[in-house]
Amino acid sequence: MAKIVAVHSFRGGTGKSNTTANLACLLAQKGHRVGIIDTDIQSPGIHVLFSLDPNDCPCALNDYLWGRCEISQTAYEVTPTADPASSGKLFLIPSSIRTGDIARVIHYGYDVNLLKEGCQRLIRELPLDYLFIDTHPGLNEETLLSIAIADMLLIILRPDHQDYQGTAVTVEVGRHLEVPRMSLLLNKVPACFSREALTDQVAHTYGCEVVGVLPHAEEMMTLASSGIFVVRYPDHHVSRELRTVTAMIEA
């Protein structure tokens, strides 16, 4: 049975795409068939992490949503080169970076039901064990839909007041939509914070599990948007932390 994980954050810049890419890679390395769908149509970016050249992708999610192609045509394999014997696979469904396409979405929108159907078909056709939905920050219609269809809502936040307030809204909305599992992942946590105290506080405040506390890692910043951290630095303590998060997602 496939698991849909909607990854969301209230504001941009929380490291949402980066974390999604790393978690998906770790699951693929463990032998799962994983998909990532970039529904952040207004500001797509996750393809950069996988060094996927948009010019090599004739079909993007936008093309599917406008009925130009089948959803299966928009899935590109980006499995991190590791054990060739492994059954793990990673597929990316990128959004178009063409400014015309982006402007069109912002102007006319699209039928969000198509997104739902697209997800369904991806899970069936590829087929997938996990589908990550990389959402646009904020709570717009496709994000709400993503939450509605997700088995797990993973909210990424930084330890600051704006994120705390915004996360409270998302958690509440998630409860309204009766998401089976809601988890919080703290990212870019300064070294001076006590991990345990922060985990307790956050879990207590939102009544949700905290699946991980990721420190502010210099190396991650250096790598920026050009590579998958867990592939480049598999033994880094951040990678180990991400692995425990992956185990909690699998649980």
Binding site: I123, E141, I149, L177
Partner: peptide
Amino acid sequence: DYFQQLKKKAKELRQGMS
């Protein structure tokens, strides 16, 4: 309205997904 409809369908949607 969108949310209300979505909420009604949410359970059904999730079951239909996999």
